[in-house]
Amino acid sequence: MVAPGGRLMDAIVETFRWLTDAASWTGPRGVLARSLEHLWISLVPLASAMAVAIPAGVLAGHHRRGQAVGAAISNLGRAVPSLALLVFGLLLSVRVLGLGFSFWPIVFTLFFLALQPLFTNSYTAVREADPALLEAARGQGLSERDVLLAVELPVASPVILTAVRITAVQVVATAPLGALAAGGGLGRFIIDGFGQKDDGQMLGGVVLVAVFALLVEFAITRLERRVVPGPLQGRTDAAAVVATGRAN
């Protein structure tokens, strides 16, 4: 607690120095390589969770079934601490499946983390499609499959995409946790910097993670603008966000 002001300035200077040092960026443990790792340990679980949770949520929403199960998953999914998920991922990877710990533990962790917001929002989005709209579609003789694909899914798509964006940011921001269990990615700089009392490296890592998360957010927002039909844009955030928000 000696002269916090001076310490803060030092920390900022050191961070700047670390971030602008070419040596921090190159090599197998440099920023570039770690960023790629980060992308990879985020993308694999996000894509797999999307492949599982979105269809499940959409189907459950379509059949208006599994409300109780859905709510339970949703509550439980949010309540399990991410550190606990990491331990579970670690045990699963190392002890049960024998896959080692440099990659899979954090991938499992993030996969489980991503399931809840994706499922909950897909489910809610489809279920809350305007009943009159569905009525009209069925009245025109559309099969259930067509109702799902041609009406419910397009109407739900903005919320689902918003959920994907929020989940992606959450996954990217939680991925550093893996470095606690010897994982890679940008979290390494935070853990190593902390362990080595190298404030520049640690704070540099924090900055990089935040920038990475904001870039992901930006990229998916752009994608949303392209994919989501104009009239449906901009009306989805509140609904999706409320069912999600979680820090790790």
């Binding site: 607690m1 921001a173 550093p176 979290g187 640690m202 820090a247």
Partner: peptide, 20 residues
Amino acid sequence: GVIFTIPSFALFFVLAPFTG
């Protein structure tokens, strides 16, 4: 919102030198 993207353990680590 930006604070939300900082992993919590990192935030604790960042604060530790200042507030112990």
